[in-house]
Amino acid sequence: MKNLTIPEEEYMLPGHTACLGCGATLAMRYTLKALGKNTIITIPACCWAVIPGVYPSRTLEVPLLYTAFEVTGAAVSGIRQALSAKGIEDVNVVGFAGDGGTADIGIQSLSGAVERGEDIFYIMYDNEAYMNTGIQRSSSTPKGAWTTTTQVGKVRDWKKEKKKNMVEIMAAHGIPYTATASIAFPEDFIKKLEKGKKIKGPKFYHVFSTCPTGWLVSPNKSVEVARLAVDSKVFPLYEVENGIYNITYMPKKEVSVKEYFSLQGRFRHLTEDEINEIQKEVDESWRILIEKEKWSKSLIKV
């Protein structure tokens, strides 16, 4: 008898070359558990371009097309349309890209694919910076963070700008389904993927994926940090289905931003006041999200 809360089947093999405690590998493991064998995946330049190992190594039990940094949206479109041209409609076509490859350099091709309504899954595993190149700031790096291109230094040049909200951008496209997810909540993530399997059209998942190396987090705290991000409302779990917001996990205990930051070296330089300011912004975003959920649900015609 097995005591499992997520599917047992594995489509990601061990022996890959990810860092200790890598959240991005968990994001992949859960994605494939949910989508299964009948899947084609494409990965641009990102950590996952090297995690499968050096040629001729492969670590996935599904075919993988490596591609250039900014083209994930176009690549999934090409695969999807080629399959359709061959009369194959039941294969899950998945783009699996980092935050830089999605929110920065890849946002154009992603926007195009979503606008065209391609029947694809797009997974943005968000480790909140360009980690494969060595922890450079992306538009998905949170406010307050140190990176190698937003260093603290003498004049405190840490990242001052807020994180780009990709789910909102996707929702603005009128996407049929978009959701946030976290490596600390695999059941929630897999449920959202299962839901996506029943929806024709583009599905976008913003998956919070701890990077112990880049966040200066002890590898054993990788999942714990991701859980604190959700519990502190820094990274709420919700979905937007045809414009209707639905918060999928209500934090059960009060966790402060300070508590979430305390496990991570990248926020170590922040003063009490600076953390308080970020706390206010997090509270306000959470309040707005709750209002959006109420308001959008009030629009549903009974």
């Binding site: 093999l13 061990p14 022996g15 890959h16 070359t17 200790l20 499968p52 190992g53 040629y55 001729p56 190594s57 492969r58 670590t59 993988l64």
Partner: peptide, 15 residues
């Protein structure tokens, strides 16, 4: 180049 060899040949226990 097409990668076909399962990564299980890479024993990462040594890390």
């Amino acid at each position: 180049p097409i990668a076909t060899v399962p990564s299980t040949s890479n024993k990462t226990g040594g890390w």
